[in-house]
Design a protein around this nucleic acid. Structure first.
Lengths: 191, 191
DNA sequence: ATCATTTGATAACAAATGTTATCGTCTGTC
DNA sequence: GACAGACGATAACATTTGTTATCAAATGAT
């Protein structure tokens, strides 16, 4: 699982082996809740196989805010970093194979690799990029129609369209399930 | 201008004086464009007095994505960091007093203060916080009605309501100017 | 003071989107 | 195979929101 990332990290073998040994394997069925709303997130997950959504309950309706697939890391990020109760659920969509690491081990690793400029800059750049991604996502809400947002998603993240049940996608795009269904059928007519 | 921040930075006086000397003062009228769309952002601004918006042109309509006030720093952030053509304009709303610093000087400072753990962690935390803020903003688009978004803004950032022309706020909230006007009048009726 | 421009409110109508309900298909479980 | 539940399409109707146009007030420049 971790060998594919080996060359991205300028670490000697002993550190590499130490860090990867912190991870534990976890195999779960679809619709397994990995983190409850209100719980403090203490585990960071990496997806070997499967997919995960992050969602919250808003007046009885569940609204999905993020999707994750193979090789991505997942947590209720604000809860994980600030040790606050999570405002969201983290739940598998498909049967999944995951690797997880405890927050205390992450803290150890982070503290150590801060001294390695190459890694440190790499992490900071990832942080910036994540911020930029959220800006793009938010801008699309004031710039694009729901139909356009659906088209964007098809291009930028076709996995979501292909693997995720449609009613989860609807709330992610900020529309009702009925309207998303309408959007799809209108797009089909045009082709 | 900078003395108010002096105690936040654990730097000796010589470094402090060197860094602050990089900034130049700039006084401009309302509606001054500080950065054009397509231009590569090379200046970071700090607002001593006044306010600024970031916006872009979308099919003839101008859409505002951010507002900034006193003591905040402003740039087309992705352009500034990645040296890419800016997708947005940066423009004053009020007559403003600004201090700006060239990107090359920022790079020098950043490179140096990376070695100071306290400052480094502070900057990383600010980066995280900014990411969290964008997440909150984006979530409000799938969670709240436009009227609720307006109410949130009144509470979280009343300066925007008080100092920014309403038609700029409309696009920031993702509604037409006419509809924002309707939202306000409905809210007044209820009181 | 006068004039043009900006800003914002409102009305009337059009278009987009939500809500509720119904139906059919598919999937997993027993 | 039978059944329940999940999923998605569609229709009918209600509500929200956008568009265009008009008017009034505030603001800035001369």
């Amino acid at each position: 699982m971790f060998n594919q990332f080996r060359n991205k990290f300028p670490l000697d073998d002993s550190k590499w082996n130490e860090y990867t040994s912190y991870f534990k394997r976890l195999e779960v069925s679809a619709k397994t809740i990995l983190l409850e709303e209100g719980e403090i997130s203490k585990r960071l997950f990496i997806i070997e196989k499967g997919c995960i959504r992050v969602w919250f309950n808003n007046n009885g309706k569940d609204l999905t805010t993020q999707f994750f697939f193979e090789n991505q890391s997942v947590a209720s990020i604000e809860s994980f970093i600030k040790k606050l109760p999570s405002p969201v659920f983290v739940e598998t969509i498909e049967p999944s194979v995951l690797w997880w690491i405890h927050k205390s081990d992450v803290d150890i690793i982070l503290e150590e690799i801060k001294e390695i400029p190459e890694l440190r800059d790499h992490l900071i750049n990832r942080l910036f990029q994540r911020t930029f991604d959220y800006i793009h996502h938010f801008v699309s809400f004031i710039k694009d129609s729901p139909a356009q947002r659906y088209l964007n998603l098809s291009e930028e993240n076709p996995q979501i369209i292909q693997r995720v049940p449609q009613h989860y996608i609807a709330s992610y795009l900020g529309v009702s399930t009925v309207h998303l269904s309408r959007i799809k059928s209108k797009l089909l007519q045009k082709k």
